[in-house]
Computed example of a mutant assay.
Amino acid sequence: DEMVVDTMETDEKKRYMHFYNFPAYSVGEIKPMRGPGRREVGHGALAEKALIPVLPNKEDFPYTIHLVSEVLSSNGSSSQASVCGSTLSLMDAGVPIKKPVSGIAMGVITGTDGSFKVLTDIQGLEDHYGDTDFKVAGTTDGITAMQMDVKIDGLTPDMLGIAIKQAKEARLQIMQVMLAALPEPRKVMSPYAPRIITLHINPEKIRDVIGPGGKMINQIIDETGVSIDIEDDGSVFITSADEGAAKKATEWINNITREVVVGELFQGRITRIMNFGAFAEVLPNQEGLIHISELADYRVEKVDDIVKVGDMVPVIVKEIDAQGRINLSHKMAKARLVREELGQ
């Protein structure tokens, strides 16, 4: 669902899109409502830029975010109102943004004698008759976006310094009001929001998840109803409207791709019996050998005296040799279970 940006200058994908709608009736005008104009594009880009630095990484929050600011009435800086409203919207939706962002529009009015006055939170008339419209957005730590329209030849360093100082005071005051309404992002998203779970697996295990001819991945999708996307670096994205189904698919893939560790206890399914021992599947497509000497704590004459194909038996991973072969022990597993029952 990411937006593909393909131009002569850049080729990229956007996972955060901020759209800004400013209908004519919001300022008491009557115009046809056609495509976005200069104001919509510019203000939307400014609000988007202000929030991009605080968005979570894709690894932590693998969602594509589509946010729309609908301006119903305007007598001031609706772009900075969009910044504040969008921050609260993201927090309310459960998006774990790094810091809340607030914004304010500053203005400068100059006199013929060189005197000037910096205005905070300018309204429509002050914007129209003033000499500068200076928008500042940021967190408590600093500024994330600025934009300025100038109707005079330029601004002095004193003008800019005072404007930025007053803007910070106003932004922090607005921030306090915002945080009083919602102090932090919600911990849980809406139950109606799709669930996306991200896994990172060994790239060499991708073929095991896909299976021959896509058999394994199609089985997971058919039985759980999820969508699965796998990237070449081993990133796996599991998407589902049902959180339970997503967790089931996650557990399934984890079992396929996880690697056993020496000392782990499993319930293994006997798949083959040989003269020298039995092979048991401990994880999907991963099996190990239970040598005949590891079947019991006494001498075993025939393997099928102890286990048969299809049996589920407790086994412990005794060793993984240099070739990656798994050696299991049934007698060690039984001994551990007895100790656990006795509380030792």
Rank of each mutant, 00 (worst) to 15 (best):
F237Q: 11
V83A: 04
G161H: 14
H43A: 01
G214Q: 05
L119H: 13
L46C: 01
E319W: 14
H128W: 07
T257R: 12
G343E: 01
I109G: 04
S79A: 12
A249F: 01
D121I: 06
T257K: 11
W252G: 01
E126Q: 12
T224S: 12
T224N: 01
K308F: 04
P314H: 07
K151D: 09
E340K: 14
S73G: 13
N275Y: 06
V41L: 11
V188W: 06
M332F: 14
L172W: 02
L179T: 02
I52R: 12
I210L: 07
D305T: 11
G107I: 06
V5R: 14
P62L: 03
T239W: 04
M175S: 07
M17G: 10
P32Q: 15
G324C: 09
I197Y: 00
V108S: 01
T87P: 02
N327D: 03
K247R: 15
I253W: 05
D153L: 14
D242E: 13
K302M: 07
L88E: 00
V108E: 00
M33I: 14
P36G: 14
E340T: 10
S69Y: 06
T112I: 11
E319Q: 15
D321T: 10
R339A: 13
R34M: 04
E169P: 03
N57K: 13
L125Y: 09
R39A: 13
E126I: 03
Y25K: 06
E223V: 13
D141E: 07
Y63L: 06
N75I: 01
M189V: 10
A45G: 08
S77E: 00
V54R: 10
V68I: 08
V282T: 11
M106F: 10
D304N: 15
C84D: 01
Q344N: 08
A47S: 05
W252N: 02
R336V: 01
D149I: 09
N218K: 12
P32T: 15
E259W: 15
P185L: 04
F276V: 12
V260D: 00
G154S: 13
D1Q: 07
D1P: 09
I316F: 05
A246H: 11
P56A: 08
Y129V: 10
S227I: 06
T112K: 11
Q219A: 10
A137S: 14
G44P: 08
C84N: 11
E204K: 13
N285T: 14
D222L: 13
K318T: 03
F279T: 04
S102N: 02
A163W: 00
P314W: 05
S329H: 03
R339Y: 04
I316C: 02
V309I: 14
N21P: 03
N327Q: 09
E243Y: 13
P32I: 13
A245N: 08
G37M: 04
W252H: 06
S74E: 08
D158L: 10
V68R: 09
V83R: 00
I174P: 00
C84H: 11
Q173N: 14
E231N: 12
D304Q: 10
T198S: 15
Q267R: 11
T239A: 03
P183I: 04
G85N: 04
L51D: 00
G214L: 02
T239L: 08
G107H: 10
V313A: 03
K215M: 03
F266V: 06
I217H: 00
